[in-house]
Write a protein that binds this DNA or RNA. Structure first.
Lengths: 183, 183
DNA sequence: TTAACTGTACCGTCTGGACGGTACAGTTAG
DNA sequence: CTAACTGTACCGTCCAGACGGTACAGTTAA
């Protein structure tokens, strides 16, 4: 098979990972092109070779989000414990690839990045649909909001290198609550 | 009564309100000193006359938050429908002074502003305490998270001049859910 | 087989603008 | 007279992005 590329673009993935990390750990303001290039171990020129501008970097990150989210939605729909329980459990930070892109995207949404906001809204709608199929349309929003609230609080709790709080007990109480909502 | 000031510092409140508005509607990055001064109808020199630096502006905004929050907590504790129902109802965006400072503070927390993060954590703890007194310690977190999730989603839904979604139905379903959690 | 060439994957530097903040001289109004 | 401003000019830093290179893998043609 012929190789179209002279060398493998190792920098490209490294840059994307670095961008994601900076968004997660230090917020959008810290995720400058210079900082991303530095963390990725790439020169700024090299970064801009792969991503002509910052917007392009964001857009590729959102593609990564879409891809991982599609997998997650499939798993949620097929979860034996039910979509709602799956959703609650997966609302806790576990440092999975999906968690990482999702939080990174949240950082962008926070600074009112339009395209990101649109995608996040679509994501919420998808989740709501699956939840409604599981717990009924009336209780879908309460469940969605419980999960989102868990996420929200975990995000607020992040300091610089802050230890992730013991959310295990929280998940337990949310699952108990879920049982009551199911009635 | 003697007037110590030659004129009333009208600019001061105007600046603070403008800062708040910019944080809410356009995010932290847009809330630059120049932008704040412009929106407040004040010169940049005038702004810096009252607030020697940006940090000072933030700190006065957080004082405003503390003040309004203390009132809200008192109302929540005394609410006839119960603290939890009061909390859910007040988790919806109503453009009250408290809503405004709170969302503004959230924007600062989002960019990892340390002092803001500390205050927000304290706020959550206060709410949790009152909720636990109302619905019991086991169901306090689920209720807290439902309210936070509502807030979180409202924030994500904000576009430029985006119409606030019909959250009335959401509140209804959350109150229904609250009833089941109590039962 | 090898020299000439092509395209990809980078590197390092520079520029123009924005931002936070300083300084300070003047103006208005109680 | 003094507090509350306005307005402008400026500084240092940081940032997005442009630009001109370099290194080298693969391709082509003599």
């Amino acid at each position: 098979m012929m190789e179209r590329m002279a060398r493998k673009p190792v920098a490209r993935e490294a840059v994307l990972d670095a961008f994601e990390s900076l968004l997660i750990e230090e917020g959008e303001r810290a995720a400058t092109l210079d900082a991303v290039a530095r963390l990725a171990g790439v020169s700024k020129g090299g970064l801009l070779y792969h991503f002509p501008n910052k917007e392009a970097m964001i857009s590729v990150l959102l593609e990564r989000l879409d891809r991982l989210l599609a997998e997650d939605l499939a798993a949620m729909a097929a979860a034996p414990e039910g979509a709602a329980a799956f959703f609650i459990k997966s609302s806790v930070w576990a440092d999975t690839p999906l968690d990482r892109v999702f939080v990174a995207a949240t950082r962008l949404a926070e600074v009112a990045h339009q395209e990101t906001l649109r995608r996040m809204a679509a994501v919420q709608a998808s989740w709501l649909e699956l939840l409604a199929a599981d717990v009924g349309p009336a209780m879908a929003k309460p469940v969605l909001y419980m999960g989102d609230g868990l996420y929200f609080n975990a995000m607020l709790a992040r300091g610089p290198g802050g230890p992730d709080p013991e959310v295990g007990a929280d998940v337990e109480s949310l699952l108990t609550a879920l049982g009551r909502l199911r009635g």
